[in-house]
């Protein structure tokens, strides 16, 4: 077994319950690798998840403390937890795109506004794949899913001049990055920075779903087809490409915004404020 798995993950949860060919494990490993490279121990991290593929498959894999919130509300739950936990405990959330950018978007934005010290890894399989493959808020335009049999026609958070990371930046997030799961160490480095930011960090990580997304959208369950599709669309932020030539979605990867440690962290600011009020009333 992988040394990272031996050190940080529970044997009971290995092998993963994800479908064979799923890209989620690539993200999971990168997060654990980032934790390891930062020299963090099992007890230094509390691991939370949401609902859906990302939530179910990563829940209780961590050797330390684990929680899984209701669909889309884990950000609010983690806000309460953040206030109660010592500041040196890292809270890392692995959640899905529906959880973060759909049902939980309001709570996510409010976490960004407050700059709550959380590291949110959005494991994006481009729709609701756990329920069989319905379109979501990052499903590329025109692609078929079980609920967009004639093609995804609703505006998503990713195309048409919109980028969900811009919204989060405006909301007050202090670290934002995007990497596809097929990227290597550069993604690990971004996750490390996200964890080190004492504030709200989010790494958006699109990953291949071969069972449901690829089957409907690309007409094949062969992993090679889906991974090739991802590779063609994974483009570094500063890389010059002719976007019109592809005429499709691009995942622009890299660090979008790094204002790490530039704004007061919410729980710390709250603690300081309470301490100051207490002093006044003693």
């Amino acid at each position: 077994m992988d040394y990272l798995a031996t050190k940080y993950l529970r044997p009971r949860k290995i092998p993963s319950t994800a479908c064979s060919g799923c890209g989620l494990g690539q993200i999971h490993k990168k997060v654990v690798k980032a934790i390891d490279e930062l020299g963090l121990d099992v007890g230094d991290v509390v691991w939370g998840t949401g609902i859906g593929c990302a939530g179910r498959q990563t829940f209780a894999t961590w050797k330390g403390d684990n929680f899984a919130g209701t669909h889309g509300r884990v950000y609010a739950l983690a806000t309460g937890l953040r206030i109660a936990l010592p500041p040196n405990k890292k809270i890392i959330l692995t959640v899905g795109d529906g959880d973060a950018f759909g049902i939980g978007f309001n709570h996510l934005l409010n976490c960004a506004r407050r700059n709550v010290d959380l590291t949110v890894i959005v494991c994006d399989n481009l729709g609701y794949m756990s329920t069989g493959g319905q379109y979501g808020w990052t499903t590329p335009e025109g692609y078929r899913t079980d609920s967009s049999p004639y093609g995804m026609w609703e505006p998503n958070w990713m195309q048409g001049g919109r980028d969900v990371l811009n919204i989060l930046r405006e909301a007050g997030a202090t670290f934002l990055a995007r990497h596809t799961s097929i990227e290597g160490q550069e993604a690990v480095e971004s996750i490390k920075k996200a964890i080190l930011n004492k504030g709200f960090s989010l790494v958006h990580m699109p990953y291949p779903c071969v069972t449901n997304f690829a089957e409907r959208a690309l007409g094949s369950r062969r992993p090679a087809v889906m991974y090739k599709w991802f590779k063609e669309r994974t483009v570094k932020l500063n890389e010059r490409v002719d976007e019109k030539a592809l005429g499709d979605i691009y995942f622009r990867t890299g660090i979008y915004y790094d204002a790490s440690n530039s704004r007061p962290e919410f729980a710390e600011a709250l603690r300081n404020r309470v301490a100051e009020i207490q002093r006044r009333f003693r």
Partner: peptide
């Protein structure tokens, strides 16, 4: 949820 999260902590 915030209350429950705080209680969880």
């Amino acid at each position: 949820h915030i209350c429950v999260g705080a209680s969880l902590g």
